[in-house]
Computed example of a mutant assay.
Amino acid sequence: MQDNVIYTQRDQAGLNRFYSKIYGLVGMGIGLSAFVSLLMLYVFPQNLIAISSGSSWIYYGAVILELALVVMASSAAAKNTPAALPLFLTYSALNGFTLSFIIAQYTQGTVLQAFLSSALLFLVMAVLGAVTKKDLSGMRKAMMAALIGIIIASVVNTFMGSGMISYVVSVISVLIFSGLIAYDNQQIKNVYDQTGGRVGDGWAISMALSLYLDFINLFISLLRIFARND
């Protein structure tokens, strides 16, 4: 759709600023999540154990609240309201809390390997999405359909407890979120073009939220794959 756009030096500078703003927000979100997770794992480990063993309702309540915050942050970003950024950061912090319960199940080496691999794969797919001339919107439709499929498979597997199904779901998830990272980066350029460079903070927060979710889900999927070899 935007293959034939020729950027002037001024347009390119504006697009670069838009990318910088978005990735600044993504970095803030991931950094905040990592900080909260580290606090739970190394400063408040007894609280984490207490919640896991006797107050699991706190964890599940946080998960439900996360879902509500994602919807609220997306809506606020679409309306370009001042609440969008605080909602995004609150969600990132709460996600760090819930992630700590997942990370606690794995060795430090596995977590580090998964994080570094996620960062590298994210970088590769982000660059690919930003520079490719091929329209990735068709791929996104396939990725979203596959995502619905793995969500259903994951729910079914909670009752079956199959390690093989869990592994296959994780591998497919890596492919899905890698594709979505490429698409979302191409979409940044498309949004900039379609708005004539008049992109507000709402657009930046919306795109940052999408990329943040892509990274976190990619990290969790790789964590489960690497843990299989522990």
Rank of each mutant, 00 (worst) to 15 (best):
T110L: 11
I64E: 03
P82K: 12
N190H: 07
Y167R: 10
A78L: 08
K21A: 11
G61S: 03
Q113N: 15
M144E: 06
G96A: 11
Q187V: 01
M144P: 03
Y19N: 05
L175E: 10
Q46T: 03
L48Q: 10
S221R: 09
L32Q: 03
G196L: 06
A126D: 01
Q105C: 00
V70Y: 02
A153W: 12
T158F: 15
K79I: 01
N185P: 01
F35C: 09
L213P: 00
I152M: 13
F88Y: 15
A119D: 10
G109M: 07
Q108S: 15
V131D: 11
S137Y: 07
F44C: 06
L39E: 00
Q113P: 06
I102D: 02
A76V: 05
K79S: 02
F101Y: 13
G29C: 06
V191P: 01
N185R: 08
L85C: 00
D214C: 08
G129L: 00
G129A: 05
G149Q: 10
G161W: 07
T8N: 02
S74Q: 09
A50W: 10
S53G: 14
V168T: 07
V169A: 09
L38T: 09
K79Y: 00
A142Q: 08
F97A: 12
R10S: 12
V124T: 13
A13M: 13
G61W: 06
F97Y: 15
L116H: 11
S100I: 08
A126P: 03
M143W: 04
S154Y: 07
M144W: 11
S37G: 10
G54A: 12
S166W: 10
G149H: 09
Y167K: 09
Y59L: 15
S92P: 06
T132P: 02
K141C: 15
Y212D: 06
V168G: 05
A153E: 10
V155A: 12
A119H: 07
N157T: 07
S210D: 06
N4T: 04
P45S: 12
W203R: 09
L39H: 02
I64N: 07
K133G: 09
A119L: 14
R224K: 15
I51S: 13
G27W: 01
L222S: 04
M125F: 12
W57L: 11
A227H: 13
L211S: 08
I188R: 04
R10F: 13
I64F: 14
N80K: 12
Y19R: 03
V70F: 06
S137W: 04
N80T: 07
V199E: 02
V70M: 05
L218I: 09
A145C: 01
N157C: 12
Y106D: 11
L69V: 04
L69D: 00
S74E: 06
L94F: 00
F97P: 04
M139L: 15
L25Q: 09
A227S: 14
V169F: 04
A93S: 15
E66W: 00
Q113T: 11
G61T: 08
M144S: 14
L209V: 04
A142L: 08
K141S: 11
V43D: 07
L94S: 04
G129F: 05
A119S: 14
I188L: 08
K79L: 01
G200Q: 06
A208I: 00
M139K: 10
L67C: 01
I181G: 03
Q194D: 05
K134L: 15
F18T: 08
